[in-house]
Nucleic acid binder design. Sequence first.
DNA 1: CTAGAATATTCAACTATTTGAATATTTAGT
DNA 2: ACTAAATATTCAAATAGTTGAATATTCTAG
Lengths: 122, 122
Amino acid sequence: MNCISVYKCLCDETRLRILNLLREGPLCVCHVQEALQLPQSKISKQLAFMKRNGLLQSRRYNNWTVYEIPEERNTLLEENLRCLQDLLFSDAQFKRDRGRLSKIDTSVACVAAEQCCESKID
Amino acid sequence: MNCISVYKCLCDETRLRILNLLREGPLCVCHVQEALQLPQSKISKQLAFMKRNGLLQSRRYNNWTVYEIPEERNTLLEENLRCLQDLLFSDAQFKRDRGRLSKIDTSVACVAAEQCCESKID
DNA sequence: CTAGAATATTCAACTATTTGAATATTTAGT
DNA sequence: ACTAAATATTCAAATAGTTGAATATTCTAG
């Protein structure tokens, strides 16, 4: 019953805030941390939680760990991300997060995503 | 952040099994209990949990409490019930539950739903 | 080898959820 | 009033999830 993993990830506000950012592309832990203004270990743990539950994948690039929503997405996740975008696009908290993210240089994550695209680390 | 309530309800197998049955119409606690073959207090508590989180409504009819998914459904719930139907329609456990339910006389719940439709008890 | 940046993990306290057994409550019928 | 059916609640034990502070790890640059 894989759906339960998806729902377990979606039933927490911090994790939804993280997914809200990852919709737009891969990010390192530090980017998420800065955008959400939350302690490092909290972000790291929530990302690990979602990876453990199959919602995210990660790759290592030098000092960074880049997290992203996989290409081949679970149908359920896909649908819910769509719904959430509609429901949460105008949510103040989510907006603020995206605002802060837009001011951060996240290019490392993109470079990593390109460079490592054949040698994914699970 | 109301979505979280929805996801909290969906991230448990027993609750998904219950929703799988309630998709087809209103049911009393005893019907669910018999179809799922689980202890009464467990069913009662899970139904209460979903009601508390706004996913279900209930009405009292004589000795019975009839639970149902409200007409005016949350968009998110609606979408997920749709997804789940596709994903779980052929799931063995869910099939068995529906099979057992089909052999139970659940007419009380329907009568109650009709009779009480103006005087809902929240 | 050393220092520092980025992450991950450990630890301990805390909160929430889940469970079955037992008990309480509500209601209808007698 | 008494009984039985249907449901809800209480209780205590167990498990799961969350958190921040501190520490460990990994890797790069010098």
